[in-house]
Amino acid sequence: MMRWLRVYGGVLVTRMKSAAHFRANVIAWVLYSPLQVAVIYLLWKVIYGTTHEVGGLRFQEMVLYYLVVHFLGRAMLPLQAVNYEVWSEINKGKLDVYLARPLGFGPFVFFRSLGAPTLEICLGVPFFLLFSVLLRLPIQTDPVVLAAFFFSGLLGAVVLFLIQFLIGTMTFWMERIFGVRDLVVSLFMLFSGQLIPISALPAPVARISRHLPFESIFFVPAMIYRRPQPDLEIAALIAQQAIWAAVLWVAAAAVWTRGVARYASQGG
């Protein structure tokens, strides 16, 4: 276990250092959130000028929802590049290097992609609290709900990673995967609750969403964060995420096993 942690932990730390290397990038990082939160705040202020409630959420609740989704989105953004990384390793014949090493390609890519998110979370939490205070939003203080929220966020990241990994492994059959990726990203935007809460979507669209894994990524953690106290609803939401993570893990493992059997590289 220690050896396993040392290997993958080393990969994670290297990525964190790489992400924080350039100063201009760090400054841009600091300015990024205020800008995006401002866009969301101003837009919804205009919308709530004509209504009191959207999808069962009042203005403050809507801003809190988007704030949570924004910071989850920032933390998980680097995971969206996983499909490209997997495509690149397979398509350029670089997979040999990983297959010849005593490590699993899937866990390696997972921990490599966690470097930047870990940094985002470390820097993002103080910003999240600052925005909550500035915008007079309620801050969740219940330790059980907070723990459930972090666990739910982690499960959301796993679901997103597995979706991206699955798209990447399609390279074994399709050579170019970007059309599928873009299509999935579009659906993801709508059904994950990133663009608008699922509860505000028209009823037929919201019904479709319940049968897809995307709402596990943003909508479910954001809903857990705003719960006043621990209840069965939280457990049900986490169970829903865990089931999707398990289903996607089995699918990714099956596709990987079949795909690797097809893999061939020049000189490999």
Binding site: H21, R23, I27, W29, L35
Partner: peptide
């Protein structure tokens, strides 16, 4: 400045 991908990303966010 070196890597300015995030600076460009910041500009892209304004594009929202």
């Amino acid at each position: 400045l070196g890597d300015v991908s995030r600076l460009n990303g910041l500009f892209q966010i304004s594009g929202e």
